[in-house]
Design a protein around this nucleic acid. Sequence first.
RNA 1: GGUCUCUUAGUAUAACGGUUAGUACAACGGGUUUUCAUCCCGUCAACGCGGGUUCGACUCCCGCAGAGAUCACCA
Length: 485
Amino acid sequence: MKKIVTRFAPSPTGYIHIGNVRSAIYPYLAARQSGGTFILRIEDTDQARYVEGATDLIMDTLKWLGLDWDEGPEVGGPNAPYFQTQRKNLYLQWAKKLIANGRAYADPTDSNTIQGYRDSDNAKKIPYLYRNHRPEITPEWQPGMPIRFKADPKPRKWHDEVMGDLSAGPEVQDDIILIKKDGLPTYNFAHIVDDFLMNVNMVARGVEYLSSTPNYLALYEAFGIDQPLLVSLPHILAPQGNKKLGKRDGAKSATEYRDDGILPEAMLNYLACLGWNDGTEQEIYTKEELIKNFSLDHIQNSGARYDEVKLLWMNGQWIRKLVSEQGIDKFYVRTVDFWPNSAENFDDNYKKRVLSIIYDRLKTLSDLREMTTYFFEDPKFDIEQLLANKFVKKFSEQELFSMLEATIVKLSSINNWNEENLKIALNELLETTGKKPAELFSLIRISVSFAPFSPALDLTLNVLGKETTLSRLNKVKTALVLDQQ
RNA sequence: GGUCUCUUAGUAUAACGGUUAGUACAACGGGUUUUCAUCCCGUCAACGCGGGUUCGACUCCCGCAGAGAUCACCA
């Protein structure tokens, strides 16, 4: 297999939200699969939109997802630097080459004049193309002057790995700006030069670049360089409407999902499979499996709607997968930031025991905060909540009192408080009281937790311990007595 | 408006000329000694429309409709 050299080339204008991460994931997979190179290049040529610290956010996201780069910031590489502003002179040199062979020109036209061209073409209802207004005499280039490409408009055909065979006419090819007035290159130009110098042979980017591709082809041609494999990635659509997912739709950064307790494995899995499949019915993929099974031709060519519900499902799958494959100790390490505040004073072992009985109920790690408080502090005592339960309310307070009394006596007699003995004791209680599991267990469960749900009763009581269990049961018993007086 | 692209259930997708159109999420129902979840079983639900080509079309071709992208000294 040919070694794929490709790149993720974000602009440091803020965090990368999940709608954009996929254009890092797919090239990464392609590069790793072929034993090639994955480059991170920072396209910081737009000074106006530049955001301090954005590069760190971007790298943070890639690292979290496990998308390591072979060349780029922090790691360097044979084609350093990897920030375009630091490569400024290079682009100018290359633009001058084009001027020298007549394929580019310094443009003296001021912006008002250009706007005038645009307005008058619009008024005449003819498509505005700058090349129709190309100045006859162009000056020698000097700093402060933009450089434009001299278009060679003609029908163009090309192949896109996702979209198939494509074509476009001359009407979309124009004298695009290569070097801006500020001396920095445009994206349109810079990426062509960099990709060539960095030996990039595959370019993956959003479908919005499709209509600019003919101009890029013209540039490849003008330089006499081979065009790389072109891969257009469809957009991820917002949950509502048909627009591409953007920050306005609340598209969060990948790292916000980290803080919400989404596992990077699940995020990578979900995003990779949103618009790609390997033709099988597999749903859960490790990074290694994605690398092994990835193929460009299975990328979907229409937009895919972002579905957080499915992400949550997948995260739950991953939580269970990690626990069953790696055990609770390893999984526990990932949860340390997600426990309720009151868990602070409890040791790791206790928290691990809680985790081992609750983990299969988690959709996200942050669920721990809501779901486990009663293991660390006495729950908010609410006798009305107890009495409102659909099983509990079948009984009079007198009857509930008796049931609790019997339970307390029985559980007090357990010398060796463990799962096994609790199970036996609870079963015997069902017999002696003659109550159904739903009835007796609901009473006990709510009395010790006052939570909407909790793990199996024997497991819960076992972790809570004898002392806590009995004290909470007694508290409820006492309340029932007082109520009756 | 010009140009380009896309179109299978609510959502993500499978099928690459012959299947009762498969799978997953969601929804709904049921099972596993309480609850919530896991797990298991089941139900509902799709080829945008119209023409061709073909013995046969979700699959190929042509229209139409709908949706999206782009037309910057932003990427």
